[in-house]
């Protein structure tokens, strides 16, 4: 299997399906250190994204799919996650424009663009207990795999694993960005919901490969 347009379509469908099931858990993570709506917001957004993608007759590149996803997320998610995920998908789309099938290098380019977009838009950086802590390691892992000559699929698995590890590693952190930062030290001991949802999204991308 390859990271082509059909994969991108499957990815978004898979992401939407994942979020239905994970909605309550993500809400729960957000309730602990935020306002309890992260699962709700993303579920709403990815159902809309999946709808629009399935109605998209003529896409010939993953970039075209991701562009539609970006605008669906921006116009339906709201909250902090909407513009951030919207930026991530928009930047990934722009960085891979015209590529019908992603190589490991394209994947690394896409994830790096996404990670940088989130950090820039959120005026945030790694270690602040946000989705940066999943996007950043994912981008690094994809770049490393690509540098090591791995396949696109392997690079994707490495990225997803890194995102997962990154999400888990947010637990001890004290948040300094987003709503969780209001809690100060009380934010430690909980996983960041945005980092967790990023890990889920990349896991869905892996599932969509097969």
């Amino acid at each position: 299997m390859t990271l082509d347009t059909a994969w991108a379509r499957r990815w978004i469908a898979e992401a939407a399906a994942t979020l239905v099931g994970e909605r309550d858990r993500l809400n729960g993570l957000d309730r602990a250190i935020g306002d309890g709506d992260h699962g709700e917001n993303l579920d709403r957004g990815f159902q809309a994204a999946a709808d629009r993608v399935s109605g998209l007759a003529d896409a010939t590149t993953p970039a075209e799919v991701l562009k539609v996803v970006a605008s669906a997320l921006i116009s339906t998610v709201g909250g902090a996650a909407g513009p951030l995920y919207g930026t991530a998908f928009a930047r990934a789309s722009r960085a891979t424009a015209g590529e019908p099938e992603w190589s490991a290098e394209t994947l690394a380019t896409a994830l790096t663009a996404a990670a940088e977009g989130v950090a820039e838009r959120g005026k945030s950086t790694r270690g602040e207990k946000t989705m940066n802590d999943a996007w950043g390691p994912a981008a690094d892992a994809a770049s490393a795999a690509s540098g090591a000559g791995e396949s696109a699929e392997k690079a994707l698995v490495a990225a997803a694993d890194a995102a997962r590890a990154g999400a888990e590693a947010t637990e001890p952190l004290v948040a300094t960005k987003g709503r969780a930062s209001y809690l100060g030290d009380r934010s430690a001991g909980h996983r960041d919901p945005g980092a967790e949802s990023t890990a889920l999204l990349l896991a869905a991308a892996v599932t969509a490969v097969s």
Binding site: G36, D37, N41, S75
Partner: peptide, 11 residues
């Protein structure tokens, strides 16, 4: 207005 406790989208 956005959804409960969630910012509205730009549109």
């Amino acid at each position: 207005p956005g959804p409960v406790f969630t910012s509205p989208t730009p549109d």
